[in-house]
């Protein structure tokens, strides 16, 4: 399994499609416990990322991740901008210089992204944030021998569903305290789409 620069661009294209298709859903998740703009913000940011990626030729995955990161930082607007921007920037730095990514380097990249999210959000798992999806996904990646794209989807979806039962202690939803229980965390939902898209890209090569 080798993901080259064009596969990384494909990842962002697929994620963009999923986010666009679920734009209203993401926003509806954000309405009861947030500021109701997650779908709109993510759709705007991902569209900009894809626009920039398609306008350029890339020779290594790290450059794709870096440009996507900059687009998300400048275009998302909400908290997801600095968070996703940081995640992909850390991932880019972790795999810099590689011509392609295999499962091991992807694992290193996802772990670096997770650490970036924790640092930027000053958060840990169990606070009803996107970290609750990135953390189990990073763990799943850390064992390449048993990795399968279906397993990645399952891991991300299960983790996303689980955020429904937790009370938010970080982010805008934390103002709602126990009222945040019973709602899926919007950032976990968008993260889930992003990993579903990645699973599709990997799945084509399995």
């Amino acid at each position: 399994m080798e993901l080259h620069a064009r596969d990384m661009v494909n990842w962002f294209e697929l994620a963009n499609e999923k986010i666009k298709q679920n734009k209203s859903y993401l926003t509806s998740l954000d309405q009861p416990i947030g500021d109701g703009d997650h779908g709109i913000n993510m759709a705007r940011g991902y569209q900009e990322a894809v626009n920039r990626l398609l306008a350029k030729e890339y020779s290594e995955p790290s450059e794709v991740l870096k440009d996507a990161s900059m687009a998300l930082l400048s275009k998302v607007g909400g908290a997801s901008g600095p968070l996703y921007g940081t995640a992909f920037l850390k991932m880019a730095m972790a795999v810099k210089g590689k011509d392609y990514l295999d499962l091991e380097s992807l694992s290193v990249g996802v772990k670096a992204a997770l650490d970036g999210l924790k640092q930027r959000g000053k958060s840990e798992t169990g606070e009803k944030t996107m970290i609750d999806v990135w953390s189990p996904v990073a763990t799943y990646f850390s064992n390449p021998s048993s990795f399968h794209s279906n397993g990645l989807v399952e891991t991300a979806r299960t983790a996303m569903e689980k955020t429904k039962d937790t009370m938010a202690t970080k982010g805008r939803a934390s103002y709602f305290k126990e009222k945040s229980i019973g709602h899926i965390d919007p950032g976990s939902a968008s993260s889930c789409y992003i990993f579903e898209a990645l699973a599709e890209v990997i799945g084509e090569k399995e």
């Binding site: 901008g81 600095p82 921007g85 930027r120 805008r172």
Partner: peptide
């Protein structure tokens, strides 16, 4: 003002 503004300030 709010948390996410701080994150962007840090960036």
């Amino acid at each position: 003002d709010l948390g996410s503004a701080m994150m962007n300030a840090e960036v």
